[in-house]
């Protein structure tokens, strides 16, 4: 793995963490609704996965976290505007943080019903295949979403058609308040790949190089017409289900916090000599400033006209 790629993953992961922590604060202050599902603990893997793709590979992201958007350079101001009902957002006040969209950066949105994006990805895969654009459709989802029937219908048909799709399940062990062990019959989501005759790969979400390797391999396979791959990232969830979730159902929070992939990556970046402690501190300050600027710009934007409620229904 190239050092500059690793440093870039660290920088974007740190920015994501700062952005989301600020988002939670804004939610506490009532500036935005507490609808963000914080991705703390998963951002390194999300950003590493995106780093393994081409910039125009369409991404349908999962509901937890904003690492995908930060990785592709979607405007933080625009994302905040989506949530605060300000002009200049990506979805004109219609979908909040759940439906951030920027097709020019390959961010194709998300289904509000979990697992609902899986079926969309199949059609997108059919389209890029038919149009021979050379793109790969990447769909992120959680362990929770993998229990929807759409998972079965979609992976089956995508496999039948050998669609250029990559399915990335971020298994963080929790579906809202229910642990995977109580909701899912198999130990590994990736084991289900056998049911569709496609490769099932497991990677450690704290290891960006492993994630990149797995995704790159899957994307190459897809691009060459061999069909989809199911990748399971073993991840951890550091925060609650939503921005202000007290997580009183969870006993493992403190234990999990010790294994924060961002901390691991930070230590590695320093130990590898890519950055000094001081440079990391400077980077943090820069990230905070960048986020602060996004917040200020968002707050300077005019509120959306309530008439926007009537827009964008149909062409």
């Amino acid at each position: 793995m190239r050092n500059d790629v690793l440093a870039d993953i660290f920088r974007k992961s740190l920015l994501t963490r700062v952005f989301e922590d600020r988002f939670v604060k804004l939610a506490m202050e009532g500036v935005v609704p507490p609808l963000l599902h914080p991705g703390a603990g998963q951002e390194v893997a999300q950003i590493a996965a995106i780093a393994a793709l081409k910039d125009d590979d369409p991404v349908l992201y999962a509901h937890r976290g904003t690492g995908y958007m930060i990785a592709r350079g979607v405007s933080m101001r625009a994302m905040l505007a989506d949530c605060a009902g300000r002009a200049g957002g990506t979805n004109n006040g219609k979908g909040g943080i759940m439906h951030v969209v920027d097709t020019s950066k390959g961010i194709f949105g998300e289904s509000g019903t979990l697992g609902g994006g899986l079926v969309i990805s199949v059609g997108m895969g059919m389209a890029v295949k038919k149009k021979k654009t050379g793109q790969v459709v990447v769909h992120f989802f959680g362990d929770g979403g993998s229990n929807r029937g759409t998972f079965h219908e979609s992976l089956n048909w995508a496999a039948v058609q050998k669609l250029p799709c990559v399915y990335i399940c971020e298994n963080n062990g929790w579906a809202v308040s229910v642990p995977v062990s109580e909701s899912t019959a198999v130990e590994n989501i990736a084991d289900r790949a056998h049911g569709y005759g496609i490769p099932g790969v497991i990677v450690d979400g704290a290891d960006p190089a492993a994630v990149m390797d797995a995704v790159r391999t899957a994307a190459e396979r897809a691009r060459s017409g061999q069909g989809p791959t199911l990748i399971e990232i073993k991840a951890i969830r550091l925060r609650g289900h939503y921005a202000t979730d007290p997580q009183d159902y969870r006993a493992d929070a403190a234990e999990v916090a010790k294994n924060d992939p961002l901390e691991t990556l930070r230590a590695r970046v320093i130990s590898m000599g890519l950055m000094t402690e001081a440079e990391v501190e400077t980077l943090l300050t820069e990230c905070e400033a960048e986020v602060q600027q996004a917040v200020e710009e968002m707050q300077a934007s005019p509120p959306l006209s309530p008439e926007a409620a009537f827009e964008d229904v149909m062409v």
Binding site: P58, F108, G116, L118, V119, I120, S121, V122, G123, M124, G125, M126, A127, V128, K130, K131, G149, T150, E153, S154, N156, W157, V160
Partner: peptide, 28 residues
């Protein structure tokens, strides 16, 4: 068969893939 083709009995993905194909520029 790449323009007129059979599908599994999977109504959710039949309709959902139509949406996906449509947003990518096809007219399913």
């Amino acid at each position: 068969a790449d323009r007129v083709f059979d599908s599994p009995i999977s109504e959710n993905v039949l309709v959902g893939a139509g949406v996906g194909a449509a947003v990518m520029g096809l007219r399913p």
